[in-house]
Amino acid sequence: MTKWKVFKEGVFEELPLQVGVFPFGIIYGIMAIETGLTPLQAFLMSSIIFGGASQIVFLQLFSSGSSMAVLVTSVGAINSRHFLYSLSMLEFLKKLSLKWRIILGYLLTDEAYAVSIRKFMNEPNKLFLHFHLLGTGITLFLSWQLSTLTGILLGGDLPEFLDLQFIIPLTFIAIIIPMIKSVSTLFVVLSSAVTALICKNLDINFWIILSAVVGIIFGILTSKMDSKR
C-alpha cells in the first residue's frame, strides 16, 4: 500500500469522530468570546494548545480570575494523559526522523490516538504506519480549527434560553463514566468530588489542583483493591 493510501485511510477512519468534536469546538469558540478573549486569541489557542478539554478549562479558570500558575498547571495536568499515549506509540515511531516525531507529537490527541493505535497494534509491521497518524491527526486538527472559527463567528448571538455552557460538564461526564472501571477509579472520582465541594465551600483558590491531588492519592491507596486480571 502506498503512503497516501495509508494517509487516506487515517483520514476516513477519523471522520466519524467529528460528530462529537465539531460541536465541542463550536462551544469552545462561543465560550472564548463570552469569556472576553479576542477572536485572534480564541482562534490561535486552538492551534497553540490544540486540546479541547484543556482549552475549556483554561477559559473557566481564566474567567474566575485564577493565577497563571494555576492555569498552566491545570492545562498540563489535563493533557498529561497524552504522555502515556506518546509512550505507547514510541515503539512504532522510533525510527522516524526528528522532524516527523515533532509533527506527530504535536498532532497526538485523544481522538487521533484512539483511531491510530488500533491500526498500529493490528498491523504492526505495515509500511508507512506514521502516515496513518498523520491522516487522523490532520483531520482532527482541521476540524478543530474550523469548528473553533464557527463558534467565534457565532459569538454571543445565541438566544438566552439556550444555556449551552452546560454541554461542558455533560461532555466531561460522558468522558469520565467509561473510565470508572475499578474500585480505585471510583475512589478517585468520589474523593476528588468531595474535596472540590469542601474547597469551594471554604473559598480555596487552588481547589482544582488540591482536589486532583487528593483524588490521585486515593486512587493509588485503593489500587490494591482492584481485581487483578
Binding site: A77, I176, S184, T185, A196, G219
Partner: peptide
C-alpha cells in the same frame, strides 16, 4: 488517574 482526578 489524572484525567478522572482533574475532570471530576
Amino acid at each position: 488517574y489524572i484525567p478522572l482526578a482533574v475532570l471530576t
